[in-house]
């Protein structure tokens, strides 16, 4: 579950999950959804994604940075994520998607980077919540 947040020049999102694993998967979904329309993406291939960080915040930024590298560097689009293992310093999971095909997929907004601007990763009554801003 995620929603879009406003920023004067760029764009952000708020993601929620019952667990940290769910939160990280949802945040990756938000990034994918900001980049491209999700409905035409077939989750036919699995891409392993892992990241490390010195705390939860940098772990999330680095995890999303890995996803962004696949999107912008390898031209792959994703429609689903699964986190298999997560600690404060390390996360491992799978991204499901396929190579970008301009005849079927519609890119909406190229994302330059994941930022630390007003970054939040917090525990809530229902689980976990994160707010992330992207440079676009």
């Amino acid at each position: 579950m995620f929603e879009i947040l406003e920023h004067t020049a760029d764009i952000g999102f708020r993601a929620r999950g019952r667990t940290m694993a769910e939160l990280f998967a949802e945040a990756a979904m938000a990034l994918s959804a900001i980049y491209a329309e999700l409905d035409q993406i077939e989750a036919r291939l699995e891409y392993p994604i892992e990241a490390r960080g010195e705390d939860r915040e940098s772990l999330l930024v680095n995890w999303l940075g890995e996803v962004l590298f696949w999107i912008d560097g390898r031209r792959v689009v994703f429609s689903r994520f699964r986190v298999d293992a997560i600690s404060t310093h390390e996360v491992r999971g799978l991204a499901f998607g396929e190579p970008y095909d301009p005849t079927r997929h519609r890119a909406k907004l190229l994302v330059k980077a994941v930022t630390y601007h007003q970054l939040k990763v917090t525990e809530t009554a229902e689980g976990w919540m994160a707010e992330v801003y992207l440079d676009v």
């Binding site: 940098s58 680095n62 940075g65 980077a113 630390y116």
Partner: peptide
């Protein structure tokens, strides 16, 4: 383009610690 964005991302990650 993506080259500069990644350079900034890489060095921000290094400079934090």
């Amino acid at each position: 383009r993506g080259l500069g964005h990644q350079v900034c991302t890489d060095y921000l990650a290094e400079m934090g610690p």
